[in-house]
Design a protein around this nucleic acid. Structure first.
Length: 426
DNA sequence: TCTGGGGTCCTAGGACCC
DNA sequence: TCTGGGGTCCTAGGACCC
């Protein structure tokens, strides 16, 4: 038996955890740059606010209702996630963190401790609610995909109160009979419309398709999904977190930026973010890609789509490194080569790839090895920045210009990670 | 005026190796 | 008259996830 623990409306729940006035109110969380709606409370969903819509389209609803709005605060959400995961870890040994707000738990071997899986789920739910003021739903089933289905119902059907166990063949059949194929884990919009066109609109109908049809049209991933629906586990629990294969940092500018000078500063800052993640997982990057583009939605005065530009350049490094000082040389040269005068740019981004463990440094015949002094330097810089705040020690090329920074007009305090933001109870 | 960010996996095709 | 077999690596494109 496997369980899927999933937080209800995670970002909204994090904000509510520290702000009682948000209870039972319509709340939305905006994406980076305050661009789109990426999380909604049930009350906001009831007002008809759709996932992913641009924020400016909410003007009418804002006039009619008292809508609570927040910029996303990933420092808060990331820390709350870690706390919830730690709490789950007190109940079961094997926990796979599937995303920031959900975790699979392996209940195999716990039969004598948690005799009734439903009772276990209730206990977990109650503990997380009491310790973190965060509501979770739990789906229990023999495979991950069936857990997703169980969780879907647990969240939406009131009488389940956030917990559903799918155990017997009859229970599973009934659940899949009603379940839209588009809501299955692994079926996106493309596959959903393909399946619907062919008349396979429920999970039950999909599950009963012949294997060769599925693998021909949906590749081996689709076949794994079908097996999982039949109760055959094909997606094992992954308890150890694998190292990332690529690291990307590419937040939009808060306004359109025309000049290379400012874009240089932004790129060097994104690079600092990316290399910090890189060093955290003790890897080096062998390849760096820089890309630069204009706003694809922008229209000129006559209403036509404005002239667009997209440039990107990939550079292979002579020596893999995790040093932003070293990488900056290549990244800035790449940027210079793709930059074009005469556009307002929306975003510059950096991708580090060809990642490998820093302990496995390939010796090169023609280049010097990694610079030991730089490695020591970054260790110290990372420590200082952890203690005194992000970018307290930085490359001069990052500069101190903040006019390009993305918008965060409605950001909440970092209640759990910053002493100055700690909640005061009167 | 204003439209997010960061990832993973699979396949086909081409170039190459012995 | 007869012209093999078994691989790897890389890239682009397309699908998916939260």
């Amino acid at each position: 038996m496997i369980g899927l623990v999933d937080v209800n409306n995670f970002y909204v729940s994090c904000e509510r955890s520290f702000n009682l006035s948000l209870d039972k109110q319509p709340v939305v969380i905006l994406s980076n740059n305050d661009g789109c709606v990426i999380a909604r409370s049930n009350e906001a969903k009831a007002l008809g606010i759709k996932m992913g819509i641009p924020f400016f389209q909410l003007d009418e609803i804002r006039k009619q209702h008292n809508l609570f709005i927040f910029s996303s605060n990933y420092t808060l959400y990331g820390d709350m996630s870690a706390r919830i995961m730690a709490t789950i870890g007190r109940f079961v040994e094997e926990v796979e963190m599937n995303s920031i707000d959900e975790a699979f738990v392996n209940l195999a071997g716990y039969e004598s401790i948690y005799r009734d899986p439903t009772a276990f789920a209730r206990q977990l739910q109650q503990t997380i609610g009491q310790w973190h003021r965060i509501p979770v739903s739990v789906g229990l089933a023999p495979t991950k995909t069936l857990c997703k289905v169980a969780n879907h119902y647990a969240k939406r059907v009131d009488e389940y109160k956030g917990v559903l166990l799918l155990e017997t063949a009859a229970q599973i059949d009934e659940a899949l009979h009603e379940f839209s194929v588009a809501d299955l884990w692994g079926i996106g919009s493309r596959y959903a419309s393909l399946l619907r066109r062919n008349g396979f609109d429920t999970a039950a109908k999909f599950r009963n398709l012949p294997d060769d049809w599925i693998s021909k049209n949906l590749t081996v991933n689709g076949l794994r999904l079908a097996y999982e629906l039949r109760g055959v586990p094909c997606k094992p629990l992954e308890v150890d977190i694998p190292d990332k294969k690529a690291i990307c940092s590419a937040p939009s500018f808060g306004r359109l930026i025309p000049d290379l000078e400012t874009i240089n500063q932004a790129l060097t800052t994104h690079l600092a973010r990316a290399t910090q993640k890189l060093r955290q997982q003790q890897s080096t990057a062998g390849t760096v890609t820089v890309f630069l583009h204009t706003n694809r939605y922008r229209r000129s005065l006559n209403g036509e789509l404005a002239k667009q530009y997209y440039g990107s350049r990939t550079v292979q490094l002579p020596n893999p490194t995790s040093s932003n000082a070293e990488l900056a040389v290549y990244a800035l040269a790449a940027l210079k080569s793709i930059y074009q005068f005469g556009y307002g740019f929306q975003k510059v981004g950096i991708i580090l790839s060809d990642l490998r463990p820093d302990s496995h440094q390939q010796e090169s015949l023609f280049c010097e090895g990694p610079d030991e002094r730089l490695i020591k330097l970054h260790r110290v810089v990372d420590k200082l920045n952890h203690r005194y705040g992000r970018d307290k020690v930085r490359l001069a090329a990052q500069g101190y210009d903040t006019t390009w920074h993305h918008l965060r007009q409605w950001v909440s305090p970092c209640y759990t990670t910053n002493w100055a933001d700690i909640l005061v109870v009167q």
